[in-house]
Design a protein around this nucleic acid. Structure first.
Lengths: 339, 339
DNA sequence: CAAACATGCTCCATCGATTGAGCAAGAGTG
DNA sequence: CACTCTTGCTCAATCGATGGAGCATGTTTG
């Protein structure tokens, strides 16, 4: 595990000299092509031992420069601060490794400039595929990838220039809304229009969820209160402020809420606690996303879990098939009794 | 943004031919050394435009092979499923980028084999520094790095062969224990020995926290109940099972608990809810780690937050100074009133 | 007006690993 | 014995970017 010259890294040339052989023999042995290249088992053995002793590690930069495929796969993700993205990243890494790919992940904090810069950097590193998760402008990234002849994919939020794998937001939201209504009826005696809070009206997922929210109201002939659709952003503070302002203008709050993400739920719960709405008369809540602690907050919180493993199965299926047409795959989310 | 030959990526040679100039001129222009290399502004302009048109991106593999420094910095992290590691990763990425470094992060799911393999892979990618976060065997990774002449650092859990940046677990645990005791006295009338749950007795952080836990008991002359120190692992199921078994053998539970991580807290809260211990007589809890929803679970939950920004400031301070002696830096955690 | 200098480039070796082509020595065949 | 095959290797070009050295011009300077 030691080496004489401690200033430089060991290369195949160093090993070749030590073994009294050629660099190409060393290379063949270390990358496993030695049988094909008719290197004797004896020499292979000697080289392997030497490589171990010297703590040799291939220089991927050199290796990849020569090869045609990099086996690197990139992912851009908005945040690491919730279980949804956390499990996307963890599952992605695991599945990539299982397939012999090297995953590179970068967090772009919902910053469009950073997204593009990160995408460019990943292209420089010769990624073979780039997965844009929850990107604000996925098509821009697909354009960059197309120009570099690299496959791209959209996850969580759809785009029009690459295959998109997203949750079935409409159906999920409709079912979640139905459940919140049911819980509300059980707790407060009658079905009332709900409040929708969180997300951005401009993003596809939010608008689909609002559509599902409306559909569920229509299903049981309850009118939607337009002033109670508050897609005021993802940050907890935004949700908290919206609720505070609504309570100020209206005096009371709806008895049920559809919360568009755990991040928004954080703000909602904070407001409920702070304003003393907690307890007997606290609103019935449904959240489109899952968090273990939020799930423990009370029987009044219903959660849908997006099916991350299935979404990533779909991602890798597309990667393996090499497909590049901009289909959209919608994965049904999972309701709590099936977690 | 288009290119004629769609099968291959644009290189500086392609651009050179298109611009009727040499590859070295193109290279100089695109990497910003053109003034030093006395390329005219006119040619620089032309090349830049062309590069944009062709959607050119440097081949980092080639570039890094030639350069002496890779500017790549690696981090190994156990999981993405809690706020602590999530914010470590996010902060690390941001700070690395601010310093012109390219962060590569990999999640090793507390698997010692995977940790080593991931470290090897990162060395192949020519990382200049490797930060092992919460590694099960940080010294093994430091050895690998040393053999490759790469700096290594330990974060969250200390090692003996590289600088370690960790929380001040002893002081934090002592103060947290003191607070749980106080809350317990307020709720139940008297100070009783607490339960310690979660973590692995073999890891440094857990043992330091147990030491702090003992010290806080000693401070007010309360004996520690040795059978109530349950360092049964990090997984929620482990904590849940430990509590269930304790309740079975003892009939009742301690009135206060020191929970060693949010992950363990997940199991603890699940058990408390399921077993009907929630409410009036639910135990007073303190958790060494913070989670926004857990913080909302009730007034009975006290949390300490590890000071991630300060920890990473320390990490980058060491990286910038190039120090390699195995000092240990302990960062005080933050208590809830100062979040 | 010649020497010295500045300007604006180009040439080419180099980084480390890979791989097609090829060479020498021994084994097998007719 | 002359040949073809096989075995076990080595040679050298290559991937794309970089940067030291150097080569024409044009511009000053004494």
């Amino acid at each position: 595990m030691n080496q004489e010259k401690s200033s430089k890294k060991t290369t195949i040339y160093d090993l070749a000299e030590l073994a009294g052989t050629s660099a190409s023999a060393v290379s063949a042995v270390l990358n496993g092509t030695w049988k094909k290249r008719r290197i004797s088992a004896k020499l292979a053995e000697r080289i392997t031992t030497l490589a171990d002793e010297q703590g040799y590690a291939v220089n991927m930069q050199a290796s990849l420069l020569r090869r045609e495929k990099s086996k690197i796969i990139g992912m851009i993700v908005p945040k690491y601060d919730n279980r949804y993205f956390g499990s996307i990243v963890e599952t992605f890494e695991t599945m990539a490794r299982e397939r012999g790919l090297f995953p590179i992940i970068t967090c772009t904090r919902r910053d469009p400039e950073l997204e593009v810069e990160a995408a460019r950097t990943m292209l420089s590193y010769q990624v073979e595929w780039l997965v844009s998760t929850g990107a604000t402008d996925p098509d821009r990234i697909s354009d960059l990838c197309a120009a570099a002849n690299v496959g791209s994919l959209n996850l969580d939020l759809p785009g029009t220039k690459a295959p998109s794998i997203i949750s079935d937001n409409f159906t999920g939201a409709r079912e979640l809304t139905r459940r919140i209504m049911l819980n509300s009826r059980v707790k407060f005696g009658q079905a009332q229009p709900l409040l929708f809070i969180g997300g951005r009206a401009s993003d596809h997922n939010t608008s689909e969820r609002i559509r599902g929210f409306r559909a569920a109201h229509a299903d049981i002939d309850v009118p939607v209160d337009e002033s109670h659709i508050l897609a005021s952003g993802y940050a907890p503070e935004k949700a908290e402020a919206s609720l505070a302002s609504l309570a100020r203008t209206e005096g009371s709050l709806p008895s049920g809420m559809f919360v568009n993400s755990t991040i928004s739920l954080e703000g909602v719960m904070r407001w409920i606690k702070r304003s003393g709405h907690y307890g007997e008369h606290s609103p019935v809540i449904g959240c489109f996303d899952w968090d273990p602690f939020a799930a423990l907050l009370g029987d009044d919180v219903e959660m849908v879990r997006q099916d991350v493993p299935s979404m990533l199965d779909a991602v890798f299926a597309i990667i393996e098939s090499g497909a590049a047409d901009s289909t959209r795959i919608e994965i049904p989310p999972i309701f709590s009794e099936n977690f």
